[in-house]
Design a binder for these strands. Structure first.
Lengths: 339, 339
DNA sequence: TTGTAGGCGTTATCAC
DNA sequence: GTGATAACGCCTACAA
């Protein structure tokens, strides 16, 4: 029957002179199986180079061996980091990663996602921020009966379904650092409305100011949307202030790079005239001049853990953590204010 | 039988009072089918919300509906652009994209890839550079009987298996532009050894110099590896030359950003003291100050076409092109040399 | 134009 | 412990 050149379970069974089911038991490491039988079958498997057909397994088990990455994240580096973390977790397993971008703004987003889940029936899906913050999406997964784990900046779901970073506290620490250097007029560039991470980071910023008894006018807070351009624009608004801030916390590195750009355009030296702190620790943070002090966001580790949670019952592992701590990376974009 | 909640082909057949095969014909748009029957069955399909099970189809057809992206590219933006192009092509088809990074340096790379292809039996794979330049990989695909399309900087394979850009000519055009501005001492920063794109771009550079009758010492050519840091290092070596180059062509934008950085560190103004041209037109090219003149590399379009080639026989389309032209994007990093 | 029988490669059930 | 037998959901032959 080896028409495709690929040996099947039948070939193995025939050569080993056992039943298909026995071969199946060997493949699936069934405990109730004689050691000699197992060894004999395994030998035939190796000899024939037999590889179980995932499609047939999927059909029989009524479940696929695909792990979906559902995302609507505009940042390439972030998505790649998540993919890398997932693939680390999936390495040497029978699972494959399928990528599913969605359009947060689209009216049919939820329907599209449902269709994907119902058609493909992935073993599980990893929800990346910001789409992971949408409870309707998580609810759809539940309804359809698809495992899911959400990544986010706060615990939005039960530990089993969640991998979170402590953005609020991390930002508080970063801004505390600025304050400890002597800064009092500190600007904030927010992330996009509707991003939970943007809210958390803003809260951390406000926590730090409140903790130090600093009150600033509303104008020290500028809107951004995590892009370089928005950081540039926001910085221009902030630097127009009189007196202007001596430091700016940017809710991500990309915008922080825009701040550097804006400062340079008006002849300000970073960090002498303006200290800057970013968030993420993406490559751009180290590439920009001066290298940015930033908060390292352990996104790849989070993705790896999230993926391990997803496949936990098929590959029993140690319990995966749900909370990941971000840490401050001190580089050259911060110094004490002068004058 | 609707145990999973999902209606099957049997449910549709029963409700529509036809045979499974007739339903199958509707799904597969078989031409030999009465219009009234088709309409009736389609109505039941819609009513029941029936979705064909891809796993069952895969098993029966002995082929998967997965398109693999095989890559070992270190640049996040490039990989994301390719993924985006692929997903555009796959949108509204039954195919899914699975991502398969490989380690070019690993001794087991080829064996790992074979294992992936033999196990998963993807419908086809897209080979991204630089792994696409490895003939052994293409050969493995052929042997295993897996469709493949290679992306590259030159036609490395038959049109059916290839989507290429004209890097050599594009670079020649870019360097011609520099020469037309009056530059004569032009430095080159190469891509990594073993990357075909690096060779093609270097050839284009040499073509332009030769065409203008310019001869430069070997020291005007510096090695890089497509990273920011390598661009920085290479630029430092180039800028140490006496007399130093008035312009530098960098084989990609990432390294060009490093050149900008290096120039700034030694107080050189770009473009007044140094003109810079990059390659790729990734976001960093527009973000850096000044915005980089660069060569736009239509990587997403290439990936889309490559993917359409892959699924061509299942979704007959117009013939996809195999050669894509890169174009020069003029921004602010180039001007005539002074003094 | 439509239907029937059988198979794709695996797992689950339930005997032995 | 091990093995028939029947799913799983769809498709290809071939028949009607």
């Amino acid at each position: 029957m080896r028409r495709t050149g690929q040996p099947t379970i039948n070939d193995v069974a025939r050569v080993a002179a056992v039943s298909k089911k026995t071969v199946s038991r060997v493949i699936n490491r069934s405990p109730l199986l004689g050691d000699d039988t197992r060894a004999r079958v395994q030998a035939v498997i190796d000899e024939l180079g037999y590889i179980p057909n995932p499609q047939a397994r999927a059909l029989a088990l009524r479940r696929n061996f695909l792990i979906g990455l559902v995302h609507d994240n505009p940042n390439a580096q972030t998505v790649m980091n998540v993919q890398q973390g997932m693939l680390e977790a999936l390495h040497d397993t029978e699972f494959e990663m399928v990528v599913r971008p969605v359009d947060r703004g689209s009216a049919t987003m939820l329907a599209d996602l449902r269709h994907f889940l119902e058609r493909q029936r992935p073993y599980g899906v990893l929800l990346m921020p910001p789409i992971s913050e949408n409870d309707l999406v998580a609810h759809a997964c539940r309804e359809i009966g698809c495992r899911y784990v959400r990544m986010g900046s706060a615990m939005l779901d039960e530990a089993e379904h969640m991998v979170a970073s402590n953005d609020r506290e991390a930002v508080r620490g970063a801004v505390d650092h600025l304050i400890a250097q002597g800064h009092r007029r500190i600007g904030l560039i927010c992330g996009p409305h509707g991003f939970r991470s943007a809210r958390e980071r803003r809260s951390g910023f406000e926590d730090a100011l409140a903790g130090a008894g600093i009150t600033l006018p509303r104008s020290f807070i500028a809107d951004g949307n995590y892009t370089f351009e928005s950081g540039l624009t926001a910085a221009e608004r902030l630097l127009d202030l009189m007196p202007r801030p001596t430091a700016i916390f940017s809710s991500n590195d990309e915008m922080a790079a825009g701040v550097v750009h804006a400062a340079r355009m008006r002849g300000l030296d970073v960090p002498r005239d303006l200290s800057i702190v970013g968030f993420d620790d993406t490559p751009i943070a180290a590439h920009v001049w001066p290298p940015l002090t930033t908060v390292r966001w352990p996104i790849a580790s989070m993705a790896r853990s999230a993926t391990l949670k997803l496949i936990a019952d098929s590959h029993p592992e140690v319990e995966e953590p749900s909370l990941f701590l971000s840490t401050l990376i001190r580089r050259a974009s911060v110094m004490a204010p002068h004058g």
